[in-house]
Amino acid sequence: MSSAFAPHHMPCAECGASLAMDERADHVCDPERRLEYRLLQLRDEVDGFEDGLCGYLDSPQGRFAQWLAERDRHRPKG
């Protein structure tokens, strides 16, 4: 196997942090960085979810669900 053209640094697959070859074994992901990295990877899904949610809320079923939730919210407890 050849290692020609292999870069000295590669991003961590979990958090995207740039790691030198000799840092890989000891690397521990920063939780905040990992979350940001994962959210960026999922941005299309997140955007799609928000578009889908807005579409649903604008549909007859969604409008009724909102009306029902609002009514329940104001209903006296107990």
């Binding site: 050849s2 290692s3 292999a6 590669m10």
Partner: peptide, 15 residues
């Protein structure tokens, strides 16, 4: 190296 690190080009196998 930048293109490999960004995943635009496959990382070459290491020996």
């Amino acid at each position: 190296g930048m293109l490999i690190q960004l995943g635009a080009i496959p990382e070459p196998a290491r020996a």
